[in-house]
Design a protein around this nucleic acid. Structure first.
Lengths: 181, 181
DNA sequence: GCACACTATGTCAGAACTGACATAGTGGGA
DNA sequence: TCCCACTATGTCAGTTCTGACATAGTGTGC
């Protein structure tokens, strides 16, 4: 019954208690590299998780019309999360707009197309540099069992992905240049 | 106004006229590697594209309660598609369930986790082998401007992606094995 | 003392997507 | 001749996601 967003929230809460606002911030970065959600989605999902007994909260005095709610995992929530982790992921359909554009690229002006891929290349190179800096700060992978292993392993995935993307953009630019004009 | 799904349909129609059924089949493979849609979505979108004058159709006698409709791009549709191709892609949020599981993997039993990644590795190796077979059938990249360039370039992207994924799964398995149990 | 950025929670309308249901002609094989 | 797989179009309910709107306390600097 719990949606993947629900598990994303449980996964963050497993590292410590958070407010909905904190969760929304976490869902931008670093979790945001592989799962994002707006705060409106998060508050709604928290209410569902609460109804299912997977999370609880302590009300605290704080900003906003409703004060502040600090959420935490319950024993049930932790058990559900643990069971979910090793189940095969539900296949999500690939939806990559740049690749779709590439599929239709034979229709485009070569100059504009080179511009598109040059911009994408720059963006991916920048992200790659960021990830490499982050990786250097780790100084090698933590052992599995350490929460930081989760961060490192996802970062490693991101590094590989950005390298792949950079290589592909370069390959595209070569193809587009060698064909003249 | 036109959604990305709309452009996906236009991109397929740019290669020749199709029925909604043909489009649904195309959205499974090969376009399906980077954009998928169910037939219910496609029929609804075709009606919107038709209302916007981007596609037209010829009614033919055929199966089903409504007969058969063979859709084609209009001049407006081609112009919109051309303009869209070189515009920067709208950033779509990353939502990768396997990476999310990885983020929470420090909570899991190592044996079950190895099983998960071994299965994923096998799946990606299989896809990679398929793509390599397809690539060999091309015998080198067609020139940009050729519709087949779109197919080849997206295939090349898929090859890079699967290689990245295979490497990452192997790296994970190494990490998980070296930590004992 | 005031303005402003940040913290904090929520609702709602609408778009995008999924999966089930409904209907019916065509062509090939037993 | 009958059955079945395939071709073919469509609706609908429900879920997920996005972006705008609404509200209000807290802490910092001028």
């Amino acid at each position: 019954m719990t949606s993947t967003l629900g598990f994303a929230i449980l996964a963050v809460l497993a590292r410590g208690e958070r407010t909905g606002y904190d969760l929304a911030a976490a869902m931008r970065t670093p979790v945001g590299y592989f799962w994002t959600a707006g705060h409106s989605q998060i508050h709604a999902e928290l209410q569902k998780l609460r109804a299912g007994g997977l999370v609880g909260f302590e009300a605290e005095h704080g900003p906003g019309p409703q004060g502040k709610k600090v959420y935490h995992l319950t024993a049930d929530g932790l058990a559900e999360l643990r069971a979910w982790v090793t189940e095969p992921p539900r296949a999500r359909p690939e939806r990559d707009e740049l690749v779709l554009k590439t599929y239709a690229s034979w229709l485009a002006e070569p100059g504009l197309l080179r511009r598109l891929f040059a911009d994408q290349l720059a963006m991916h190179e920048e992200r790659l540099a960021d990830y490499e800096r982050e990786e250097a700060a780790f100084g090698g992978p933590p052992p599995p069992g350490d929460p930081r292993f989760g961060n490192y392993a996802t970062l490693w995935c991101g590094l590989g992905y950005e390298r792949h993307r950079v290589e592909w953009c370069r390959w595209m630019l070569e193809r587009l240049s060698s064909a003249g004009a």
